[in-house]
Design a protein around this nucleic acid. Structure first.
Lengths: 344, 344
DNA sequence: ATGAAAGCGCTAACAT
DNA sequence: ATGTTAGCGCTTTCAT
């Protein structure tokens, strides 16, 4: 390793042409004779020459790179999203610079500044926990931006969104239809836009069912199994009579299952539990989770598609794609009904 | 968005100095008067100027970027690894270019060539499915390389490895100690180096226990729940009497649990199942999986640490870090023993 | 302490 | 069809 890299001039010299001609060969410019092209290509293969994206980027002002900002890549929702994003990006010759914020809002601004320094052609910001004003400012530096699971009021920023209000409504409605008259909400990060939307849907469903909302039913937590478990444990200490829990996502819901098991509650007999996202895990735990299906991988690929459209077109694109989540009923709520244990 | 970027010359002009001086300020060069430094810094803040990594990279021949090549980022093992890698990288000012090969060996070579064109300072290649010779050749282009879960004979390439032979041995030995005299191996991808190592440990454990290995006990599959399930199903059709399964990883093991459930086998009563990696999922399924604990996240951070050492030191570093995996006994095998159902 | 000049490896005009 | 000339935004070296 580590011998000097072959440059375009090296190839030119070996081929006995100007480095311009080599450039033409690389870029499939037709104004090169077949013989010259052939010779140059041979030298390229021989020397293992690879054009430098760096040099090319400096002059074209394009890096063929996009930044992907996620709260936590080890969260299955975001790793599936990343897979979808990477696939579409690579199909179009783009690479992905991965930035993990660790759920830290200030880190978001840092990585966005970094991505700007790196001249990425665009960024995809997922589940931003940052406030509107600073986020807006940090995003203004980019040629193209797509938000995921976050809306920015007044700005015409393209976004891929899940209709989380509707999702929260559907789940809560389902729980209430079990004949339950109180539903706890394990809300995830307080700075999460999706969390706020789901909360709104939850409240609406309660209202529509004539159930009076209590602030004590809501408990925020980090979107992980461990923190979900802890949150549910403390929620149930304060509200021991709660018969149902709607959880921010499936990880939190699994935490809820554990907390229920630890406190001797049977799910779904003593407690109905519902999650959100429908990650693979939801089908693997026991009881399998009732949840709201969100197409994680497709959201990633969609986001990249839109971003590439923005990058490669001159018109401003500012549409939003809103995915309708679908209620998926599984064991963690449904058997309660089947067993005839429901009140109504 | 999309107005012209502020460059170093813009700042220089506004500050009334040469752009050289601005460069000195950016790079904390002491040969700048306090007054000038102050003025320049004000202009930088005012204009929102950010130095271009591209231009800088062109002259320094460093990109502060490392390539991370993984078979599947949505596999929890690799997403945890990526999280560890990203964290250490960002702490040292490095960014990560994420490349997903989709388990495709030829794709590995493609992305390595791409990463070379992008002048990454080094690459981390995880679980390569590529053969020695082409892999060797593709890696030779880089200043620094760290392999994860793969060894390259004869080459002095630093690597972070799990002692999978020992892991395979431990798991198999545990299964055999249940009084079982036959163990199936659901082997994962045939091109996986770790898979081959685990197979070797498995065979050794069989031999040491005086159990004659049968080729029909081994079934290859993609390292996913779905493919594991299918593989186990077909394995059990051919070998219906098998009392135990050692699975390539926990995803495959979960697939095995499903296949067992589908075929009416109780785990662990009728069938002992063990996985590998000890991802979070292993503790969440029912029965909880006996598995071999591998510190995924730490492997990622270690790999980056070593890579950065290679990049930033002139001596050739070529050590291997070998992590000893630890057997973790859970419900999917242990109760068999506790229940006294074991034969021996 | 500051500036001027060269050059990193390439593409994009403009010659010829 | 090919070569020449700039120049992308910076760092490095050498002057002053």
């Amino acid at each position: 390793m580590s011998r000097r890299r072959v440059t375009i001039s090296d190839v030119a010299e070996l081929a006995g042409v100007s480095y311009q001609t080599v450039s033409r060969v690389i870029n499939n410019n037709p104004h090169v004779s077949a013989a010259t092209r052939q010779r140059v290509q041979e030298i390229i293969v021989e020397t293992g020459y690879r054009p430098s994206y760096i040099a090319r980027s400096l002059v074209t002002a394009r890096t063929a790179t996009i930044g992907l900002v996620v709260p936590d890549i080890s969260n299955p929702f975001f790793s599936a999203l990343a897979r979808g994003a990477e696939q579409v990006a690579s199909e179009h010759g783009y690479s992905i610079l991965l930035c993990n914020t660790g759920e830290d809002a200030s880190r978001e601004i840092e990585v966005l500044n970094l991505l700007h320094e790196r001249y990425v052609d665009g960024v995809i910001v997922c589940g931003s926990r940052q406030e509107d004003a600073p986020l807006k400012k940090a995003l203004a530096q980019f040629r193209a931006v797509v938000l995921v699971n976050r809306r920015l009021q007044g700005e015409m920023i393209p976004a891929v969104l899940v209709d989380d209000t509707s999702g929260g409504y559907l789940v809560t409605q389902h729980l209430l239809q079990l004949g339950i008259t109180a539903v706890g909400f394990v809300a995830g990060p307080s700075a999460s836009y999706s969390g706020a939307q789901r909360l709104q849907g939850y409240k609406q469903a309660l209202a529509d069912a004539g159930v009076k909302f209590k602030a004590g039913w809501v408990q925020y937590c980090a979107p992980t199994v461990a923190d979900g478990e802890e949150a549910v444990q403390s929620l149930l200490e304060k509200q021991p009579e709660l018969p149902a829990l709607f959880c921010y996502n499936d990880l939190v819901a699994v935490g809820a299952l554990r907390a229920c098991a630890a406190s001797g509650r049977q799910v779904p007999a003593d407690m109905a539990v519902a999650g959100y996202d429908d990650i693979m895990l939801a089908t693997l735990v026991s009881p399998a989770l009732t949840t709201c299906h969100v197409p994680c991988l497709e959201i990633g690929s969609q986001a990249v598609s839109i971003l590439l459209d923005c990058i490669n077109s001159d018109e401003e694109i500012c549409g939003e794609i809103v995915v309708k989540p679908e209620l998926v009923i599984r064991e963690s709520t449904s058997t309660k009904n089947e067993n005839g244990l429901a009140v109504s």
